Amino acid sequence: MIHYYAQTDGALHATSGQTGTAIPPGTLWIDLMDPEPEEAAFIGQALGVEIPGREAIVEIEETSRLYQHGGALYLTATLVSGIRQQRPISSDVMFVVAADHLVTVRYANLPFFEYLEDKFLREPESHGSSEQIFISLCGSVVDHIADMLELMQRDLDEMSEAVFSDDRSAASARKPGRTDLQTVVKRLGRHNSALSKLRESLMSMGRVLDYSNQWASLWVSDPGLDRSRSIERDIRSLVDYVAKMFDEIAFLLSATLGLIDIEQNSIIKVFSIAAVLFLPPTLVGTVYGMNFRIMPELDWAFGYPVAVGLMVVSAILPYAWFKWKGWL
């Protein structure tokens, strides 16, 4: 699918296109969403650039992801989507940047692409060239990642409060259980996976901007270069923030697993004490349950109450001992 973004009445507006139809005049950005080979070939021929296929875009060598050819920059970034739906997916996006146009090739719906359309209407003066659109797109990617990190940090704060809450500790002391802690462990695992993909996106965008700045003389003005370097600084700060969040997740995971062990030990402790309390009465009952013919107590009138009393006393004495030692 081809989307053209052309300047009309001083602002960028999106229109859909088809293979073989003329590119609208004033087009600055062409977005190829899951393009067919014919669509990629048509745009490449119309603009005089090469549009790589999907196999070339997903290559992992840096020389295949970042290069300059024919006066245009070919930049591939790995971006993540689906964080809000808790289904993070990484996908590769190629930017073909030239002085008079920008072409993006992607194979997934990415939210920050849709956000740009509103931005075009709000700030038309900041999107009057391919350079400005590319930098604005990079900024939108970084802003979106920052929003996702803020969302994850709030969730981590809530989990931390729930795990270390005094109310929860009191409830666990009355009725030990692991269900809520197991849920926390699963949520931490999902956050760790999403955070890894967000860090990958940040580092990928950092490499894209660093490489594009090296060739800034081809297509970037001084204000655009300043904005690009500002985004790079934001990326570095977010990478540090991600490292802090990884440490927090590791601490929460370790603490949660420790609490699960404590609650498991509490359960085992209850069973162990119960076994000790019932062991002496069981011994007494076993002795008087033997079927020997000559047992003096069998003919004793007080034999039954004495045996029951022994069982009760033999259960009370260990209980009193545990209480005195502070084990209960």
Rank of each mutant, 00 (worst) to 15 (best):
L47C: 01
L66E: 08
E200M: 09
Y107V: 00
L110Q: 07
L28D: 07
G289I: 09
S193M: 12
L151G: 12
A255R: 15
S160F: 07
E158Y: 12
I294M: 12
L75W: 08
W215N: 12
V184H: 14
A98Q: 04
L225M: 07
F120R: 09
L137K: 06
L47P: 03
V96H: 02
G139F: 02
A98K: 05
S169L: 15
A99F: 00
F164W: 13
L279A: 14
Y74N: 08
V287K: 11
K323D: 01
L79T: 01
N265L: 10
S140Q: 14
L298Q: 11
F251W: 11
D92R: 03
L47M: 05
L202W: 03
F246W: 06
R84K: 14
T104S: 11
I2V: 06
V208H: 11
K197Q: 13
W321S: 08
S254D: 14
I2A: 04
L298D: 00
M205K: 03
L32E: 00
K269H: 14
R187W: 09
V105I: 13
F134L: 11
V287G: 09
M311E: 00
L151R: 15
A22M: 08
V308K: 05
A250V: 10
E50S: 06
V313T: 12
M152G: 09
F278R: 10
Q68N: 00
V96Q: 04
D100W: 04
I262K: 15
L253K: 15
R233K: 06
F113E: 05
F278A: 07
A72V: 12
Y241R: 15
H191P: 07
L225R: 14
L75N: 07
D9T: 08
A171R: 15
S64Q: 15
T183I: 03
V306D: 06
S81T: 15
V80I: 08
V220W: 11
A77F: 04
V184K: 08
A307L: 05
L137Q: 06
I260Q: 11
L156V: 07
M205I: 13
